[in-house]
C-alpha cells in the first residue's frame, strides 16, 4: 500500500466512513502488536496496548499532518501507549531506560544447544524495552534512523548509538551464553 493509498483511506475515514479504517488496522496490526510486545513482554497486555493505540490514532486522525508516513505516526502512538501501560503496571514500576529483564531460567534450561537462534532470543530478553523497540523498528520495518528518532522522540545520533550498543550487548551476551553452554557440555 503506497502512502497515497493510505491517505485516500484516511480521507474516507475522515469523510465519515469509519469501516475504511479496518484496512489500516489490518495492514499495521502485526507490527503495532510486535512493537508493543517488545516494550511490555506480555502478549495480552501488548494486544490491549496495540488496540488502544489504533483507537487513539483513529480519534486523532484529523490531526495527522501527512508530513511523515502514517506508520511513523502510528508507531509513535504505539510506543507512547505501551510505555504508558508499562508505567501503569501496579507495583512493578521501573524506569523504561533502566529496566532489564533477566534470563528466564525455564527458557534458559529449554535452550537447544545447537540452535544459535534460541540463544540470541534468550539474549534479547536481557535488553531493556527501549532497545528492543528500537532494534525492531530498525530491522523489522527497516525504518531509517531519522524515522526511528521521530517515533521514539530521540535524536538520530542517540538512536544510532542505542542500536550499536544493543547489538554489542547482544553479541556479548551470546558469547557468554555460548561459553557457558560449552563449559556444561
Amino acid at each position: 500500500m503506497t502512502p497515497e493509498q493510505e491517505f485516500a483511506i484516511i480521507d474516507k475515514v475522515l469523510a465519515g466512513n469509519p469501516s475504511a479504517y479496518a484496512d489500516l488496522v489490518n495492514r499495521y496490526k502485526n507490527y503495532a502488536f510486535t512493537l508493543a510486545l517488545k516494550v511490555l513482554s506480555n502478549r495480552p497486555e501488548a494486544e490491549e496496548a496495540a488496540q488502544d493505540a489504533f483507537v487513539k490514532a483513529y480519534h486523532h486522525l484529523k490531526n495527522f499532518n501527512r508530513e511523515s508516513k502514517f506508520s511513523t505516526w502510528l508507531y509513535r502512538i504505539v510506543f507512547n501507549t505501551a510505555v504508558s501501560y508499562k508505567r501503569k503496571r501496579k507495583g512493578t514500576y521501573q524506569d523504561i531506560e533502566k529496566t532489564e529483564v533477566g534470563l528466564n531460567p525455564v527458557a534458559e534450561s529449554n535452550l537447544e544447544k545447537n540452535d544459535k537462534k534460541k540463544f540470541i532470543h534468550a539474549a534479547m530478553s536481557t535488553l531493556n524495552e527501549a532497545d528492543r523497540f528500537t532494534l525492531t523498528l530498525f530491522y523489522l520495518q527497516e525504518h531509517s534512523l531519522e524515522e526511528i528518532a521521530e517515533i521514539t522522540g530521540m535524536q538520530a545520533n542517540t538512536v544510532k548509538v542505542r542500536i550499536h550498543r544493543a547489538r554489542q550487548r547482544l553479541a556479548d551476551e551470546l558469547t557468554r551464553i555460548l561459553n557457558t553452554e560449552a563449559l556444561t557440555l
Binding site: 507490527y31 502488536f33 530498525f138 547482544l170
Partner: peptide, 17 residues
C-alpha cells in the same frame, strides 16, 4: 558474533495478534 545478531534480527518476523 555480531553477524549472528545482525542476521537473526534481519530474518525476524512480526508477531501476530
Amino acid at each position: 558474533a555480531l553477524r549472528s545478531i545482525h542476521d537473526y534480527l534481519l530474518t525476524s518476523r512480526a508477531d501476530e495478534p
